[in-house]
Design a binder for these strands. Structure first.
Lengths: 195, 195
DNA sequence: GTCTATAGTCGGATAGAC
DNA sequence: GTCTATCCGACTATAGAC
């Protein structure tokens, strides 16, 4: 028989993050109570405070973890010298990674304003670093004559918004596979940057 | 001397909507209390219920009002038979209108999940109608051979996401004027659709 | 590590005086 | 139309038993 109480530190921590992520994404940070999270995990509300100092720190952990994983995953993508190939890798990577982590992407985007100023600045810094990765690719492409955009900064923001937008409409098992979506978006991005 | 109490129905209603919009956009619907809204307007919390049956209806009014105004404003834009000219009008209209109503755009986008199912369906229907306006332009362009996209539905979603993204970074008095931003985005959209 | 119990605050919404 | 007062429930976070 499973006992009702005892030590489960190694599984409770991750489960708290998983349930909090799910609930925050579905109902919004402010609309979710610590009691709801605890109930979803199967512990009492008080037990959550063994794993997080407060509710905001829990949100920050989720957002910070997501951004770290995003940057780490991009860093592991193969490099290359061809700017156009790099751009294609970025487009496909961004769509693929964001669809795989739809919940975390949604959170990192909707719940930023619930962070305190210092925590907000951390996440913004990581986001900016990711954007810079794309801008460097565009600048290199521009320098090499492989791409032609009116403004690399605006092109960066335009491309990221366009790609992230996939998450708002894509549904698994729908009309198009992920690979097809990647290819169609790459086609539009390639043309948009005049390549 | 201004009296402290009395009848101000004609100005209080709009002021409640204005302050609620501002507060919801800044802190999120769930994080804002009726007392906060009342304090911003300068009345007591109970007085709000003369203007709205409950908090959600207040949010719905804001979102519905915004979508109605968006569709009405687009309906007033000049028509024409040239699909490419129509596309340019859409691009410039969308950026201009959304920058003028940044607060309402942000709300209509972030707070959808706080609506009840029937109210949610109303807003989604209006949003869909707006998207269809763009898709019809792309289809007409495709038929006329003026544009060439792999998929008009995806191109619609990609363009709208890209254009709406301007709101996330544009700051008044920044490096670029609104007109310049419109022109740069139109250049990227035009290329993206193979025109 | 998790529980129960609780402190202390704040929430949405309503009743009734003016 | 607005106010004051209030009901009643829910919230975050903590204390202390086990």
């Amino acid at each position: 028989m499973a006992r009702k109480t005892g030590s489960h530190a190694e599984i409770t921590g991750p489960r708290i993050r998983a349930e909090a992520s799910r609930l925050f994404a579905r109902h919004g940070f402010a609309a979710v109570s610590m009691r709801q999270i605890a109930a979803a995990v199967g512990v009492q509300a008080g037990a959550l405070y063994l794993y997080t100092p407060d509710k905001e720190a829990l949100l920050f952990d989720l957002l910070k973890g997501h951004m770290d994983e995003l940057l780490a995953a991009w860093a592991q993508e193969p490099r290359g010298t061809d700017p156009l190939a790099a751009l294609e890798r970025f487009v496909r990577f961004h769509i693929r990674f964001n669809l795989e982590r739809a919940e975390a992407v949604f959170l990192s985007y909707m719940e930023l304003r619930n962070l305190s100023e210092p925590n907000f600045a951390v996440i913004e810094g990581l986001r900016k670093r990711y954007e810079t990765e794309l801008e460097e690719i565009l600048k290199a492409g521009q320098a090499a004559g492989a791409v032609s955009v009116p403004d690399t900064k605006l092109a960066t923001m335009a491309i990221i918004a366009m790609l992230t937008g996939v998450n708002t409409w894509y549904r698994e098992g729908g009309r198009l596979s992920r690979a097809t979506v990647e290819t169609i978006y790459w086609d539009m991005v390639r043309k948009a940057v005049g390549a």
